[in-house]
Every structure is written in C-alpha cells, then in structure tokens.
Design a binder for these strands. Sequence first.
DNA 1: GCCAATACTTACAAAATTGTAAGCTTCTAT
DNA 2: ATAGAAGCTTACAATTTTGTAAGTATTGGC
Lengths: 120, 120
Amino acid sequence: MRKQTSTNWLNEERLKATCGMAYTLNLIGDRWKGSILWALMEDERLRFSQLRDLLTGISERMLAKQLDELEEDQLINRIVHPEVPPRVEYELTELGHSMKSMLEKMSDWGEMHREKIENN
Amino acid sequence: MRKQTSTNWLNEERLKATCGMAYTLNLIGDRWKGSILWALMEDERLRFSQLRDLLTGISERMLAKQLDELEEDQLINRIVHPEVPPRVEYELTELGHSMKSMLEKMSDWGEMHREKIENN
DNA sequence: GCCAATACTTACAAAATTGTAAGCTTCTAT
DNA sequence: ATAGAAGCTTACAATTTTGTAAGTATTGGC
C-alpha cells in the first residue's frame, strides 16, 4: 500500500499524467514484469508454476503480485480451470500483444548497448 | 550503496545478464530518467538548473544522482564551463541519441494505452 | 568583509519494494 | 484419515529508494 499523501506518490502521479513514457514505465518497469510478458509472448499460455520455474529466482509472493498488477492493467488474462488441485493459466490480452514491437525494440537496444559498453 | 550479497541484488544481476529488456529497463527505468532523456532530446543542451525547473517536483539530490548515473552509463555528457558561479550543461551522447525511436515508441504506446484504459 | 549565484554533497528520516517462511483451500488418491 | 498438489496469501523483516533540509566551494560585485 502506498501513502497517497507522500511526495513520492504525488511525483509519480504527476509524471504518469504528463508523460507517456513514464506511464509505460510504470506498467512494465517492475523487476519481473518485462520477463513475464516476454515469456508469454513466446509461449502463448503459461501456468503459475511454469512461470515460477522459468523466472529463475522469483518468489511466489512476487510472481503473484506482478501477475495481479498485470491483470489489473489489462495486459494479461487469468484463466482459471475449476479443478483440484487448481490450474490457472495466463495469457496476453490484445493490449498485451500490442506491446510486442516495443518490447522487442527495448530488448534489441539493450543487447546492443551492453556490447558497446562491455567492449569500451 | 547496495548490498552485493542480497538476493535482491543477485536477482537483478541475473536478469540484466540474461535479458536485454531488463538491461534496458535498468538504465532508464528510474523515476526521472526517462524525463531527463526526453528533455535532452528536445533541447539539445540543458543546464542543471534548467533541468531542475523543467522536471516539476524533482529535488536537487535526485537530479544530481540520476545525471550521475546516466553519465556513467554513457548516455549523456557533462560539460563544465570553468566559471564562477559554475555553469554545467548536459547533452545526449551518440548512444543516448540512439534511444530516440525506442523512447518514442514507449511514449506512443503509453498515450495509446492510457486512452484505452480511461475510456474502458 | 559580506552576500549572491550555481551546482552540487551530505546526513538523516520516511517510504516503498522485495525476500523469507509459513499457512490456507479443496478435493483426490492412498 | 492423511498426505499431497497448485496457486496463492499473510506476517514480518531486510533492503532499497526517495525526500528533506542544511551545508560546501569559488569568485565577482557592493
């Protein structure tokens, strides 16, 4: 829970409201979100446990939280199969898919920059 | 200073090393970095005080820190004019400029997504 | 000598994020 | 009846980021 009177919160809100890039970063800038989206672009549908195993090092707590937020932002769908033990799958929404070329660009730029910096 | 033995730090390093997108997000994902870069794309060269005034709400402490890191990552140049009182200007490096189309894409996507969500 | 101007630093506090470990639910197979 | 499976949730602690306010250096003008 964030404190909606903090300078920190106000600054973030102002930025999101005035800058499309800041807005985007807010949606995908968290530690694991990029990787989750990336995984779902490659695999179409993944279960909670599959994502957990793909994202080396993530805790269940983090994964659940990030998935929650991505769903709230309408970037992914959560598909619950009413079985026991439960089976839940995640997939990109149309909006989620619309990020694809952007994320690819970010990925390409990152690889390029890394090389340049490492061979400085 | 970060603790180089924390799980947090290890997770971040692993991600940066294996995922170009995470690497990129690490460079530009901080609260104000996108806006700083954006400002420098529009204005070519800006002084410390100009940036401070453009970025409503930023503190000098934050601005100095973000500029430091951007310089270290070779995305901006710091130009010191040996005068008193001091005059310091910042501009994008070539590498910094190479982000332009990526940042535009992020900005465009953000504006688009915001509209969709607000008219849901 | 004293103040103002600019671009920072610094120390400390507050807030936010992330990690760790345990627990919950619901049915099914043993 | 007991254990186990999957997908979470919770409480609490550690870590990390951000904010606040004050201070520093240098020199020219009053």
